[in-house]
């Protein structure tokens, strides 16, 4: 039992962070707080992918200059790094779009609280 825990506690941390984001997204009424929660959720996924590329005793995936035979076990898995690199930048861009939408909502309804927006839209 303890052995399974020590080998996998990283997943526990990632899932905790992810659930923090999920809880924020479903139970906060303020759209800005929802957005922050979404970003936390996204970071949890990025951490999870990066962690899946780690190998014990390995170095960063940049091949040394005077290498002879390349042993893949000595370099971290570069694939998650690539995927998350683009995911981070696209995440920033989509966050920008979300913030822009939020500003438009605020212009129109005068609030970013969910219930007040609904009341305003029903009028």
């Amino acid at each position: 039992m303890l052995e399974t825990f020590t080998a996998r506690y990283y997943y526990l941390l990632v899932i905790f962070l992810m659930m923090l984001g999920l809880w924020g997204m479903i139970s906060k009424r303020n759209l800005m707080k929802k957005l922050i929660a979404m970003t936390i959720f996204q970071s949890a996924i990025i951490f999870f992918y990066i962690a899946s590329g780690v190998k014990r005793g390995a170095a960063i995936p940049i091949i040394e200059h005077d290498h002879t035979k390349i042993n893949p076990d000595l370099y971290h898995n570069p694939l998650p790094h690539v995927l998350m690199l683009t995911a981070i930048v696209v995440g920033v861009a989509t966050l920008g779009v979300a913030l822009a939408l939020l500003e438009r909502i605020y212009d129109r309804c005068g609030s970013i609280e969910e219930d007040e927006i609904i009341r305003k839209l029903e009028e």
């Binding site: 996998r8 590329g53 190998k55 898995n77």
Partner: peptide
Amino acid sequence: FPRWADPNAPASRHVSPYYL
């Protein structure tokens, strides 16, 4: 799931050795 930092994890066994 594989243990953390396991070099034999399925994620590190398929295409990434080819790339490296």
